[in-house]
């Protein structure tokens, strides 16, 4: 194909969150990516922090003291929230992406019924599970301990 001489109009990362009047599944898609990147960042920080144990007892206790404030407890809870969402939504996606819960091809008669309608009950159950985990995790982080 010839090189396009047009003006670039790709939405870019703006298209993950806005740039249109999108449906809830698109926001789950964006949230899944954002929580995934957040967990990756946490994992890298976790590896760097725990590797200080190799530098001896003093270095380990110093690095632990650095992350023991109340701000870090909230940060850890946010990591847990990201984990709860990413894990449950990830299981839903893994099943959907190999054809479970998306329905069979049908005759398209208006108003159209799509794979999103087939997924809707699964999405609702998954999000209730996420909410339950977040509440129980919150109690464990801030009340029971």
């Amino acid at each position: 194909m010839l090189e396009s001489r047009g003006h670039p109009n790709r939405l870019g990362m703006r298209g993950w969150l806005f740039g249109g009047r999108w449906g809830p599944d698109r926001y789950l898609y964006s949230l899944h990516r954002i929580t995934g990147l957040g967990l990756l960042l946490y994992f890298a920080m976790h590896i760097i922090l725990t590797s200080s144990r190799a530098l001896g007892q003093g270095a380990w206790e110093e690095s632990m003291a650095r992350v023991s404030g109340p701000l870090f407890v909230i940060g850890e809870y946010l990591v847990f929230v990201a984990f709860a969402f990413h894990a449950i939504n990830g299981l839903r996606l893994a099943l959907a992406e190999v054809g479970f819960g998306v329905g069979k091809p049908i005759e398209p008669i208006y108003p159209y019924r799509t794979a999103l309608d087939e997924q809707r009950p699964i999405v609702v159950v998954a999000m209730i599970l996420v909410a339950l985990l977040i509440v129980v995790g919150g109690l464990d982080f801030f009340v029971w301990h």
């Binding site: 599944d25 698109r26 964006s30 996606l93 992406e97 054809g99 998306v102 159209y112 799509t114 087939e118």
Partner: peptide, 30 residues
Amino acid sequence: RCHFAGECSRVCPKGVDPAKAIQLLRRDLV
């Protein structure tokens, strides 16, 4: 690279449901 945002199926003016087609395609490939 599809992660089932499903927007394609929501906007399709003919009810083709490409999101469903892609998930079924992956099932066959797996």
